Simulated assay, not measured.
Amino acid sequence: MPAARPLRVTAVINPIKPGIMDARQELEQACLESEWPAPVFVETTIDRPGGPQAREAVAAGAELVVAMGGDGTVREVAHGLAGTGTQFAVVPLGTANLFARNLHIMRGRLSQMVRMALHGTVARVDLGLASFREYAGVGPWSGDLPFLVMAGIGQDARTVVETRDSLKSRMGWLAYLESGARHLLHEPIRMRVAIDDEPAEDVEAWTVLAGNCGRIPTGIEVFPDALVDDGRLAVLQARIDHPLRWFGVAAQGLFKVRSAASGLDYRAAEQVIVTPSEPLPVQLDGDAYLPVGEVRFRVWPRSLHLRLPPGRIRS
């Protein structure tokens, strides 16, 4: 790795993740090899999942904050660091590692990942934010919740809600496929979708997704054109009105060939507001939230200073 000036490093760690002790030792050794100060370690808890610890680390003078855990820990630490200018790095230790996979921060070579976290190229990337209302158009929006890869409302979120914990413990992210297969033939849902300043449109959609990155662990690119640093969200309305449309969807995802027959409507936006005809669950990077009457997805452009392998940002 290239030489870099010493940085004060804090690692926000999920203490229950497999491999966390090895990751701690690797970070301590990497800082020692680089003649940097010893890293500070702070643990997440159920009540404090990473965001507060990240903000406290910044206030205490940390110059680089490393998230060591799964997608939930990474997402929360990112939210705590967004807009601060403090550098952010990821050592993925979760099941799906969606964000790390999209940016080629691969799990499996722990020593290399830790040293890349310390010495990788700094790039400015976007953060997605979601806020909810219990009833459409009534009352203030909730506080923002972060997402780094993609968020959705509709049948995809129901898929996440109904994924069996027993399968997740045995199969990891493959468990979502089992739940997804059970939902493929469910009817589309009536929703009102407002993209940026355009007039709201009434649609029937299986799901509406907002993406900051494009790829899910199966290798399928849900958003082939998504860029993590362009200040826009990729918006997908899956208007699946007949089971045969799923063949077009599969072909598009696997072979990256756009087809009008798939029923997939793509846009790019800074904000999208979705109002379903009935309360629906929402998912953020594969984590489910209770049914809501209205959801707003928006982007916080280039708000994170993320350390990455060289050449991993396309724009």
Rank of each mutant, 00 (worst) to 15 (best):
W36R: 05
N14I: 04
L244R: 07
R258G: 04
A30R: 13
G128R: 08
L304H: 02
A226T: 08
R158N: 11
A250K: 00
R182S: 13
A261R: 15
G211W: 09
V161L: 06
Q53R: 11
L64S: 08
C31V: 01
R298F: 04
K256F: 01
S169Q: 12
S179R: 02
V12R: 07
L184N: 03
T95S: 15
A268V: 14
R5E: 15
L174F: 02
M1V: 14
A11D: 04
T218E: 00
E221T: 14
I20V: 15
P309A: 04
E270H: 13
V149I: 07
V125M: 11
F297I: 08
V228W: 03
A238F: 05
A4G: 13
F41H: 01
S131M: 08
G311H: 06
A4C: 10
H186P: 00
A268S: 14
F255Q: 13
L209K: 00
P301A: 14
T207G: 03
F255Y: 15
I313P: 05
A251T: 05
R307M: 08
T10E: 10
S34F: 07
M116T: 09
R5Q: 15
F247L: 14
F132Q: 05
R107Q: 15
G50K: 02
M21W: 06
A157L: 10
V122N: 00
W300L: 14
